[in-house]
């Protein structure tokens, strides 16, 4: 199937879904109440973005939370991952605790974070950090452990000291694993921020959805979902671009063994 045909099918599918949605909400008042309809949802989106302009502050807050959580979680995961991977004894001591923390459903931390950090940005960032941290941590840990012994021996023979090994061997190897998990960790940061808002906040897209739900404003709930989905897609695209730029050294299928 060529690309054009593919595109036609995809657009057709969207039209079918939207028109079925619209038609069923026109036929049944129950459906109209629980599902709203695409036209109303679109109108809501237009008023948020172009008329009332009130979505921006909420979206801004959610994005700031996501970004902060992502950066803090990645840096913490990187540092702790490097430290534990290079320190066998510490890793052995910490192992059961890390496993337990990772197994714990992190969302239940939201109430305690709200208590500690208040209803502002900090509690959401804290929740999202706990999600991002473990993804990055486990990947860095793996990345350092998987450095080929030959590569290490070679670097040592070339005269690399401990710091050189860290900077030129362990860190780049770990980074390749971090980047491969970047899509997941950005997504998790976003989830953490929105769930945190949903569980208690005064601003953010999660808060917006919570408010709408409280007043049975189904079209705003749907509009919020659309906004979040689009945001997640944009974030994912940005990550893909960054990955492409920074991971040029990695072979891609079809480009190996050139010349």
């Amino acid at each position: 199937m060529n690309n054009k045909l593919l595109r036609v099918w995809q657009i057709a599918l969207v039209i079918i879904i939207l028109s079925t949605w619209q038609a069923s909400s026109m036929l049944s008042t129950k459906a109209a109440f629980f599902f709203s309809n695409p036209i109303d949802v679109a109108a809501r989106l237009v008023s948020w973005f172009f008329i009332d302009l009130d979505i921006y502050q909420h979206l801004g807050v959610t994005l700031i939370e996501t970004l902060l959580a992502f950066v803090i979680g990645t840096i913490l995961g990187l540092l702790v991952g490097l430290w534990l991977a290079l320190n066998q004894r510490a890793a052995a001591i910490c192992d059961p605790f890390l496993k337990a923390l990772n197994a714990m459903p992190r969302v239940i931390l939201a109430p305690i974070f709200a208590l500690w950090f208040g209803l502002g940005i900090a509690s959401k960032v804290a929740l999202a950090v706990t999600l991002v941290f473990f993804i990055v941590f486990f990947n860095v840990f793996q990345g350092v452990r998987e450095v080929s012994p030959t590569l290490l021996a070679n670097a040592r023979m070339l005269g690399a000291g401990r710091n050189d090994l860290l900077r030129h061997v362990y860190l780049p190897s770990a980074m390749s694993w971090v980047f491969s998990s970047l899509h997941i960790s950005v997504g998790m940061a976003f989830v953490g921020a929105v769930v945190g808002e949903y569980l208690g906040s005064a601003r953010g897209v999660g808060y917006l959805i919570l408010q709408a739900e409280g007043s049975f404003d189904v079209r705003s709930v749907f509009a919020g979902i659309v906004v979040l989905t689009l945001c997640a897609l944009v974030l994912d695209t940005l990550v893909g671009k960054a990955e492409k730029r920074l991971m040029r050294w990695q072979p891609k299928i079809g480009t190996t063994e050139k010349i």
Partner: peptide, 20 residues
């Protein structure tokens, strides 16, 4: 410790893949 006066060529690939 490491023999600093020696250079070592390995059987397996030992180049750092992230460096040009």
């Amino acid at each position: 410790g490491i023999n600093k006066r020696a250079g070592y060529m390995f059987q397996a690939d030992a180049l750092m893949p992230w460096k040009k």
